[in-house]
Design a binder for these strands. Structure first.
Length: 468
RNA sequence: GGCGCAGUAGCCAAGUGGUAAGGCAUGGGUCUGCAACACCCUGAUUCACCGGUUCAAAUCCGGUCUGCGCCUCCA
């Protein structure tokens, strides 16, 4: 399995620190509002990475935080006249709902920054003791960036370029030793949540939390650290500096970053008015469509979002779902139980698609290529399977298709829904009407059912129905 | 100014040295009471442009044009 590592800017063979196990940390959202579809990309992408690792037999310890102390949260709390904790708790709950709807599995651990303050104080103290950090008069603690010689190794920047850059990175009123130094701990302002510390009553800077949580739940050395590409600098660069200066060990072996999601070819932003929450998309589409859409491009490429693209994704996903439902429908009505010799060969032939799928995923999680293997498999099923197929063949093909889709987090099996007696009666009545060539009544019944969200399809194998 | 990414059919998108996957959309056909599903056929003599290397280039090298990202909170 090859993984593109931002550190080396190359695809590298994935070798875990400990055989059979993967320690993975993904930077999670700051919970001050409903998550947007840009937040959704890394969630879906890295959930898929996790699923594939598990598919390959790894035991994955997957940690993803919620940043629940931050300026934006405090601002929101002030606006609503409630506590910061109430804001963050509310949006953590909402985020978990969205994740479930996107079929993103909960992490092994979802730590909260506010629950890990002790660890942060400890790490900051160690950094101060080692000379990598210093406190100034008002109690702010800064990281001494230039002291960490490898600073810039992830983002491939050199410090002098940063200082000579166009942008004026100096902020007035700061008393840092060097403009590159970043905050580890800062004093509280009036009315803000705070914790006691040796330096001042205050709260942690943003970067320190991830270093601490990764260390606590995964250890000083981890396999994979992931997040959006915008986090490379400065967030991940700073994490490396903190963790490696503190622990004296390589922090993460592989750094994986997903590309940005644009909307109508523009960066998503509230001021542009092209800002969508996952919740909004969920009102119009099953969020599986969003997931399918996101995985149809490579995770490192920028991805454009638009209404047309979602429609195309919806139609494409529908094709896979139809094939799965067809297999299930045929299976339900199969006459023969066991596979014939010929069928065994058909099933054996489908192994090729599994291999193509795995080859694609092994190559830096090429989900676009993996999906093409699924489509080829779908066509193979559609052309090789009839109402004469045995239950065993149909079950085998379905399981195989389901196994691949499960890696992508796509759910084939719709919930077992019990048809109301009324609906069953209507279907039967329609069949009778059709026999009598009373098509007006037949169409009328189909429309009635459509109104109830039931789509009927008259196939060679009989009437099929599905939920809209 | 520094660092980096991208340009493949109407659209989306793989492919990074061996002669262009897959999907959506379009048009035609099979099936069918109709619709839907499915299947068959329909598409790039060509991969932004110009040079070069090679028996062979979308893939490597040089240049040009265009779009984008990061360097500041950001997934």
């Amino acid at each position: 399995m090859k993984v593109y590592n931002t550190l080396s800017r190359q695809k590298e063979e994935f070798v875990p620190l400990e055989a059979g196990k993967v320690k993975m940390y993904v930077c999670g959202p700051t919970v001050y509002n409903l998550i947007h579809i840009g937040n959704a990309r890394p969630m879906m992408v890295f959930d898929t990475v996790r699923r594939y690792m598990e598919y390959k037999g790894f035991e994955v310890n997957f940690v993803s935080n919620f940043t629940d102390v931050d300026d934006k949260i405090i601002k929101k709390a002030v606006e609503e006249g409630i506590s910061a904790q109430e804001v963050s708790q509310r949006y953590i709950e909402e985020c978990k709902k969205d994740m479930a709807a996107m079929n993103v599995r909960p992490a092994t651990t979802h730590p909260l920054a506010t629950q890990e303050i002790g660890g942060m104080l400890e790490m900051i103290s160690t950094l101060v003791d080692k000379g990598f950090a210093y406190a100034v008069e008002d109690g702010t603690v800064y990281f001494r960036t230039r002291k960490f010689k490898e600073y810039g190794k992830l983002s491939h920047k050199n410090l002098d370029d940063l200082q000579a850059g166009h942008r004026d990175i100096k902020v007035t009123g700061e008393d840092k030793e060097d403009s590159l130094d970043f905050v580890l701990w800062k004093p509280k302002k009036e009315g803000e949540p705070y914790w006691e510390s040796p330096w001042c009553n205050g709260r942690p800077g943003w970067h320190i939390e991830c270093s601490v949580m990764a260390k606590k739940y995964l250890g000083e050395e981890i396999d994979i650290h992931a997040g959006g590409e915008d986090l490379i600098f400065p967030h991940h660069e700073n994490e490396i500096a903190q963790s490696e200066a503190c622990n004296g060990k390589i922090f993460a072996k592989y750094w994986i970053h997903n590309g940005f999601l644009n909307i109508d070819n523009k960066k998503m932003s509230k001021s542009e008015g092209n800002f969508f929450t996952v919740r909004e998309i969920g009102e119009k589409y099953d969020l599986q469509v969003l997931r399918f859409f996101m995985l149809s491009a490579h995770y490192r490429s920028p991805l454009n979002f638009s209404a047309d693209l979602m429609e195309a994704a919806k139609n494409g996903l529908e094709r896979i779902l139809n094939a799965a439902q067809n297999l299930q429908h045929l299976q339900k009505n199969a006459v023969a139980d066991m596979m014939t010799q010929e069928e065994a060969e058909i099933f054996a032939g489908s192994q090729a698609f599994v291999e193509k799928f795995e080859r694609a995923m092994d190559d830096d999680f090429n989900t676009a290529d993996a999906i093409s293997a699924v489509f080829e498999f779908v066509k193979y099923c559609n052309t090789n399977v009839t109402e004469k197929g045995s239950r065993e063949l149909l079950e085998n093909l379905y399981q195989r298709l389901d196994g691949l889709c499960d890696v992508l987090g796509l759910i084939l099996r719709k919930e077992e829904e019990i048809l109301d007696e009324e609906i069953e009666k209507l279907i039967a009545e329609r069949q009778a009407a059709r026999k009598e060539k009373n098509f007006a009544r037949a169409d009328e019944i189909r429309d009635i059912l459509l109104g109830k969200g039931i789509i009927l399809e008259d196939t060679r194998e009989g009437v099929k129905w599905k939920r809209a």
